[in-house]
């Protein structure tokens, strides 16, 4: 790595410094927009005791499900974990500590963490089990819950295009949690479909400025589809 050139050539380099018991953020919604290669490399590294912050937990044989299967995750912070049998089994047996967090609150916790805001009030979850033990306050006649922000040791992000300086563009709904997570890692590692030279991305179109990004690696992705839905053929005719 030299100066502002953040491109690394190997996954070893990309995840250098990631050790047991660290907190990681992993982008993606379901299997859409997940940093596949970085996850696969964590499986290979065998790091364990991880706290993983991600909207979902992958499926049994793809995404974060791979880390769960190897029992590398000790605590999972997520909003929805429905598609993963390994996860269910580890949660029910008490092996895995799960902190379910409303999706919008999770997104905002990460955004706030990256923006240097330690906590915020939200109406989401007031009067529900989510608010148990949390400070609440009435503001202008409405009740709010105080939620702490989140940061991480490593944020693992998937982008569509990156330049060598770490400016990022995401694609369609593969953006999801990736832009906020990019801001909230002590070390932010980006796995991009394409890496170009500075100046090749229009500055007007950059979603994540390079200041947030520490390492960039180029990868090709399987992009597995969780629910393959197509129009019925009679609707095509319509």
């Amino acid at each position: 790595m030299a100066g502002l050139n953040k491109v690394v050539q190997s996954y070893e380099e990309a995840l250098q410094g990631l050790t047991n018991d660290m907190t990681i953020m992993v982008g993606g919604f379901g299997l859409c927009g997940i940093p596949e290669g970085l996850i696969n490399h964590m499986v290979k590294m065998g790091v364990s005791g991880l706290t993983a912050i991600s909207n979902n937990a992958g499926v049994d044989d793809f995404g974060l499900g791979l880390l769960l299967k190897q029992r590398q995750i000790a605590t999972m912070i997520a909003s929805y974990v429905g598609e993963n049998a390994t996860f269910e089994q580890q949660m029910l047996s008490g092996e895995l500590n799960v902190i379910l967090t409303p999706q919008g609150t999770l997104a905002e916790k990460i955004r706030a963490g990256g923006a240097g805001i330690p906590a915020f009030f939200t109406a989401t979850g007031y009067g529900t089990p989510i608010a148990d033990g949390k400070e609440t306050r009435e503001i202008k006649g409405r009740h709010y819950v105080l939620e702490d922000s989140l940061t991480s040791d490593f944020a693992l992000v998937r982008a569509w295009k990156a330049d060598t300086m770490g400016n990022l563009i995401f694609r369609k709904t593969a953006a999801n949690f990736n832009p906020m997570m990019a801001t909230a890692g002590k070390i932010t590692v980006v796995e991009a479909e394409e890496i170009v030279q500075p100046g090749e991305l229009d500055p007007n179109h950059i979603h994540t400025p390079g200041i947030y990004v520490d390492r960039v690696i180029q990868a090709s992705f399987e992009k597995r589809i969780e629910q393959r839905t197509v129009k019925p053929t009679d609707a095509v005719a319509k």
Binding site: S79, L100, G104
Partner: peptide, 14 residues
């Protein structure tokens, strides 16, 4: 089994 609230809590609050 608890699968999580996803975005439902945010939707009803907002």
């Amino acid at each position: 089994l608890i699968k999580g609230m996803g975005g439902a809590m945010d939707l009803v609050a907002g």
